[in-house]
């Protein structure tokens, strides 16, 4: 039995996971223009082997009786039930902090579809893939966010977190610099 040295990456991952990407939904601003839905479809098309790509964000529209337009997408749960229930391990939180899917290894057992409390994982039978929003973590800004004119979708990332903090600092500096 030999012990192997501690991997630093594990620690870094955990730290960075706290600050990396999060997609924030500001439903009150959503106009249901469906631009995000279109952008999503295009962004995920390459992952569909034989099927027409379907968007991984949907909008529950306000009804005549009222309500608001509600964009629905993966909430990136902390103790994510879809990760817990994944039999292959293809669904896992990656270094970006987002729960992502390796569709090459998804076998379509639908265990995650059965446990997602938000109902945002869809079963694509022909491709045997349980598709959900994987955060488009390879894009600097997720395409759905990039096209959202009313800014109902926004990202928080390590970068914007730092920037927001700087702005907050400068605001505070200005306030404290004021006489009186």
């Amino acid at each position: 039995m030999t012990s192997v040295p501690l991997h630093v990456s594990g620690m870094l991952n955990e730290m960075s996971a706290q600050y990396t990407r999060d997609i924030i939904v500001d439903a009150a601003k959503c106009t249901a223009c469906m631009d995000c839905v279109e952008a999503c479809k295009q962004a995920v098309a390459h992952e569909h082997k034989t099927t027409e790509p379907t968007a991984r964000i949907s909008i529950r529209k306000a009804t005549a009786e009222g309500g608001i337009n509600l964009p629905q997408l993966c909430k990136n749960c902390a103790e994510a039930p879809c990760v817990v229930a994944c039999m292959t391990g293809c669904r896992i939180r990656d270094v970006s902090g987002w729960v992502t899917t390796d569709y090459e290894r998804c076998v379509g057992c639908w265990m995650c579809v059965m446990t997602c409390p938000f109902g945002v994982i869809g079963a694509v039978h022909e491709d045997k893939m349980a598709r959900k929003c994987d955060g488009c973590t390879s894009h600097e800004v997720p395409p759905c966010v990039a096209v959202c004119k009313p800014q109902a979708l926004r990202v928080r990332s390590y970068g914007s977190f730092a920037q927001e903090r700087r702005q907050a600092y400068s605001r505070r500096a200005r306030v404290t610099a004021l006489p009186g």
């Binding site: 039930p81 639908w110 995650c112 579809v113 059965m114 446990t115 997602c116 409390p117 938000f118 109902g119 994982i121 079963a123």
Partner: peptide, 10 residues
């Protein structure tokens, strides 16, 4: 039709 099975589970 297993749509939204997870909602039921929860």
């Amino acid at each position: 039709d297993v749509a939204h099975g997870g909602v039921l589970t929860w």
